[in-house]
């Protein structure tokens, strides 16, 4: 779709490796680039920051996975993270809802603020955090339960069982799955096709009404048709939720995101800006090389 955008960028002026905070706040010039880049028509006005990281370092044992990452993710927009394999973009995503806690060897340094509160403070319960920050994984991973029970899972965990039927229906409608499954709610979630399973996982994540949805390459295991359904869905979700999505697919990032963060090898965040700016006129030479396919 936006291949032209990717290739027509002219060389950035400076070779600044480090993107500092001020730049990423200051750069959004309201609602110009985003409209050109994709179907998303949301205004990229200077909105409230939901997630902010300051000098975040992550280590797996002795290897450093993230270096000095500082970023501010705006509310109710789609923020994409792109970069080559092993650049730390998934690691950053998993830091936000502390899924890295499940890996014994992972160690996090620096600050990661959600609604102004450092999520790595001692008094933050990762379980409570994850109830406000939902997650969708690369491989569709519904539970081997019925479709209904899959969607109701999070609500039941939290004991929010009043009007369960309505909430399940609402979540399935939001995930654009209701019409396909409304007659088979009692059947196993594993009987659905791959794309339907992934939409079921999205319904499961939004059923508990989180503030942020993290998506870790949600369409990379799906065929083109299912991928485009998921992309349409993400576009709609951004009206109610803040979406952070990791993707390998640069065209996908260009199509669906408002802001794009580019990670390059070594776990550093090289550039973070409006998606249109990144794909048309990136400040950083390495980012341009990556986006035009010269590297990575």
């Amino acid at each position: 779709m936006s291949n032209e955008n990717v290739t027509t960028s002219d060389t950035g002026t400076d070779t600044d490796f480090q993107t500092d905070d001020d730049q990423s706040i200051a750069s959004p010039t309201p609602g110009s680039e985003a409209v050109e880049t994709g179907e998303s028509t949301r205004t990229t006005g200077a909105t409230h920051t939901v997630i902010e990281s300051r000098d975040l370092d992550v280590y797996y044992g002795d290897t450093q996975a993230l270096q000095n990452v500082s970023i501010q993710i705006p509310e109710q927009q789609v923020t994409a993270m792109i970069g080559p394999s092993g650049c730390g973009k998934s690691t950053f995503l998993r830091c936000i809802n502390r899924m890295n806690d499940l890996i014994d060897a992972a160690r996090v340094e620096g600050d990661l603020l959600f609604q102004g509160k450092n999520v790595y403070d001692d008094d933050v319960d990762p379980v409570a955090l994850r109830r406000r920050i939902g997650m969708v994984f690369q491989q569709p991973n519904p539970f081997p339960k019925s479709i209904y029970d899959n969607v109701a899972y999070g609500l039941k965990l939290q004991g929010r069982t009043e009007n369960l039927d309505e909430k399940v229906e609402h979540a399935l409608k939001q995930a654009a799955l209701w019409d396909e499954v409304k007659d088979q709610l009692d059947e196993s979630g594993l009987d659905l096709s791959g794309g339907q399973q992934q939409r079921l996982c999205i319904a499961r994540a939004i059923a508990v009404d989180p503030e942020v949805i993290l998506m870790d390459e949600p369409a990379s295991a799906l065929d083109p048709v299912a991928t485009s359904q998921i992309e349409d869905l993400i576009d709609e979700l951004a009206e109610d939720y803040t979406v952070v999505i990791v993707t390998h697919n640069m065209q996908q990032a260009a199509r669906i995101s408002d802001k794009t963060a580019v990670f390059l090898t070594g776990g550093e965040l090289v550039e973070f800006d409006d998606t249109g700016k990144i794909f048309e006129n990136p400040d950083n030479d390495r980012v341009e090389d990556y986006i035009t396919g010269k590297f990575g």
Binding site: R131, F137, Y153, G154, C201, R204
Partner: peptide
């Protein structure tokens, strides 16, 4: 992936063990 899904939904370890 099922444990991850459960933890990602905000389940405690006990809830994950019991339900998944």
């Amino acid at each position: 992936s099922m444990r991850q899904a459960s933890y990602g939904m905000g389940a405690t370890r006990w809830q994950t063990v019991r339900n998944v």
